[in-house]
């Protein structure tokens, strides 16, 4: 069903995925994301301890765990947005292809952050029009021709199913959209710069159930093109959409593996208790 809609939307606007290959960046070897002995501390608090894990490509990976276990920190460390917090110290390796994100300078990070998109917990539209919200990322990364930008904006608004809702008000401020629409806009904005990986930090927690469902479906659909890593508070959501699961407790990876195995047949006592709802 969704695939059909997608194809329909595409044919309606007269372009295909191949057309977008021209915007694809070629320099990356797309060998996925993994980290080794990653340690993060904030103001002396050891938040992540010796985390080593591998994020499988073109899958939805769910990071679960009780609140305060460090799962958000882990996610924010992947694109080093965690640097905005005061007093952060990172050691260890986060490898994207052959590059170590953990010891990059701010300037190199700008390119990494293009390759790793982030969908925040609460949608945060940029202070500009709907059109410019999508175009912004492309502009700063070097696509400036109006014609190209038009194509990109239409394509990605379609991709998140927002095109028909906003096609008549592309030039109005993005703050005028509903929260659910804003979140989809933020998703469109982050995939418009053609990342390889999308990080989602409880991306549906601020949304109503209907919008939440729409965004969830989007993730499922997007995984054929992107690697998706999401932090989620709702176990049920993880059960629904995760292909791969990582359970974190007190800053340590307790269990990781295909979602089915982790959720249905957990090996570790802690994981079992968590899934049973003993602590959350």
């Amino acid at each position: 069903m969704t695939l059909f809609v997608k194809r329909l939307a595409k044919s309606e606007n007269g372009f295909t995925k191949e057309e977008f290959s021209m915007f694809k960046h070629e320099n990356e070897d797309s060998s996925g994301l993994y980290c080794e002995k990653l340690n993060v501390s904030i103001n002396g608090n050891h938040i992540l301890k010796d985390v080593s894990l591998k994020i499988p490509k073109n899958k939805i990976t769910c990071i679960v765990g009780p609140s305060g276990c460090g799962k958000s920190t882990l996610l924010k460390t992947f694109n080093r947005i965690i640097d905005m917090t005061e007093g952060v110290k990172i050691s260890g390796k986060i490898m994207l292809g052959s590059e170590n994100i953990a010891d990059m300078s701010f300037n190199d990070l700008t390119e990494i952050r293009r390759r790793i998109g982030l969908v925040p917990q609460r949608p945060c539209p940029l202070p500009m029009s709907i059109y410019d919200n999508i175009a912004y990322g492309c502009r700063i990364h070097g696509i400036t021709k109006r014609k190209d930008l038009n194509k990109i904006v239409v394509h990605y608004l379609n991709e998140v199913g927002l095109w028909n809702e906003v096609r008549n008000r592309l030039q109005t401020p993005a703050t005028g959209l509903s929260i659910g629409q804003q979140q989809r806009l933020c998703l469109a904005r982050s995939i418009a710069v053609e990342p390889e990986i999308i990080l989602a930090d409880e991306a549906t927690s601020a949304l109503d159930p209907v919008s939440s469902k729409i965004v969830e479906d989007l993730f499922v659909r997007l995984k054929e093109d992107y690697t998706i890593v999401m932090v989620t508070h709702t176990l049920r959501q993880a059960l629904r959409i995760a292909d791969y699961a990582i359970f974190i407790y007190m800053g340590k990876v307790v269990e990781e593996g295909p979602a089915k195995e982790v959720f249905e047949n957990p090996q570790n006592e802690l994981t079992k208790n968590y899934l049973l709802g003993v602590f959350s």
Binding site: N27, N107, T110, E111, I140, H141, G142
Partner: peptide, 13 residues
């Protein structure tokens, strides 16, 4: 890559 180094130069100056 060129565009990137231009941006970073701008940022630095």
């Amino acid at each position: 890559m060129n565009i990137n180094s231009k941006r970073l130069l701008k940022e630095k100056t």
